[in-house]
């Protein structure tokens, strides 16, 4: 039995109310609760107030906005609703895939996209009970200690961003809307994360993510999401890769005009795989594409011992899963 630390719960029914409530000292936001509550049950934080968006119905729903050229996804929309939404399935198949493979069906019924984008980073030395952390000498930089057990003598936290949707939404060049005490602002998701596991987003204090805007496709494309985890459900990914290839026509034999490949579960910030120019101009179903992209992902992604399994093996699995993802895209036609 894991007891939660004592806190109060407030449930404002407007965004302004939530932002105001978040100004209280020791306040934290809760949406579906599937990330924060296990962390609180591990006593990783002791907030005085949880500000719930439970009554904030305005943040739910998916709207296709053709004038602005974006699909608007309210931050309170559950992962099940996103995975099952016809527009998402038709326009952004990799997002339907990633939202539909998070944890388990009941967790997807609870967890929201806003919560998933602001998912806390994870590490095998952090997401443990207080008793366990005490047994290794009193935690680490991210919990109650001051050392890093992953990188000896490391001063920087290397806990991993394990969200399934973040790499995909980065590959789709999504933008998020943040509401805070100074008003609202938009942030490209690619600029939202930084490589510090203890403070891995550029969210300002008291801000809440209200909306995700995914640009509608302007050309033919193929997208896919692959993840490797121990079991087929419940587990967090051990490596994950979001793939997006823009094509000059709607066919797998069409020429690639742009490539966006993003790998997750390395550090606190998903890694955008670069130097893919060699595949531009090739046909997507050219076997060289899978080879070049998976080799680039292997070279540029260096997993750390922050989640289970050997780092060398996980690195090889990045290559394997990238190649399989591209092959699956080609085979699907």
């Amino acid at each position: 039995m894991l007891r939660l630390p004592p806190f109060r719960v407030v449930s404002p029914d407007t965004v302004e109310g939530v932002v105001a409530a978040l100004q209280q000292p020791g306040a934290r936001l809760i949406a579906g609760g599937t990330d924060i509550l296990p962390n609180l049950k591990h006593w990783l934080d002791r907030p005085e107030v949880l500000v719930s968006i439970n009554r904030l119905t305005a943040l739910r729903g998916i709207v296709r906005d053709d004038n602005a050229g974006v699909l608007r996804i309210g931050a309170g929309t559950t992962l099940t609703q996103i995975a099952e939404h016809p527009d998402v399935q038709q326009l952004f198949p990799s997002l339907a895939q990633s939202a539909g493979c998070v944890a388990s069906p009941s967790i997807r019924n609870m967890g929201t996209i806003g919560g998933n984008l602001n998912l806390d980073t994870r590490c095998r030395y952090v997401n443990q009970t207080e008793f366990w952390r005490g047994a290794i000498g009193g935690g680490c930089i991210k919990s109650e200690g001051n050392v890093c057990h992953v990188v000896p003598k490391g001063r920087n936290c290397v806990a991993a961003m394990s969200s399934d949707n973040v790499p995909v939404l980065m590959s789709l060049q999504a933008v998020i809307v943040q509401a805070g005490p100074e008003g609202t602002r938009t942030v490209p998701l690619c600029d939202y994360y930084h490589a510090d596991g203890t403070r891995h987003t550029h969210a300002k204090p008291g801000e809440i993510t209200t909306e995700v805007q995914v640009p509608l496709p302007t050309s033919a494309r193929r997208t896919h999401y692959v993840k490797w985890c121990v079991r087929k459900s419940i587990d967090f990914p051990l490596v994950s890769v979001a793939l997006r290839f823009d094509l000059d026509k709607d066919d797998v034999s069409a020429t690639i005009s742009a490539a966006h490949v993003v790998a997750g579960v390395l550090g606190a910030r998903p890694r955008q795989v670069r130097k893919l120019d060699a595949i531009l101009g090739l046909a997507l179903n050219d076997p060289k594409v899978a080879q070049i992209v998976s080799e680039a992902a292997f070279k540029q992604c260096k997993p750390l011992a922050n989640v289970p399994y050997e780092t060398a093996y996980r690195r090889r699995m990045i290559r394997v899963y990238t190649r399989r993802g591209i092959e699956a895209m080609v085979n699907a036609g």
Binding site: M1, L2, V9, S11, I30, G32, G33, T34, L37, P38, K41, H42, L50, S52, N54, A103, S104, P105, S106, I107, N109, M110, I234
Partner: peptide
């Protein structure tokens, strides 16, 4: 498990299966 891994606490909230161990009582209001 009391932390969302096992599903033994699954109940339905407005007809949707959810994990009661990760649902604040206040969310059932």
């Amino acid at each position: 498990c009391d932390k969302g891994d096992c599903g033994a606490c699954t109940v339905q909230l407005d007809g949707e299966p959810v994990l009661a161990c990760l649902t604040l009582a206040a969310h059932a209001q």
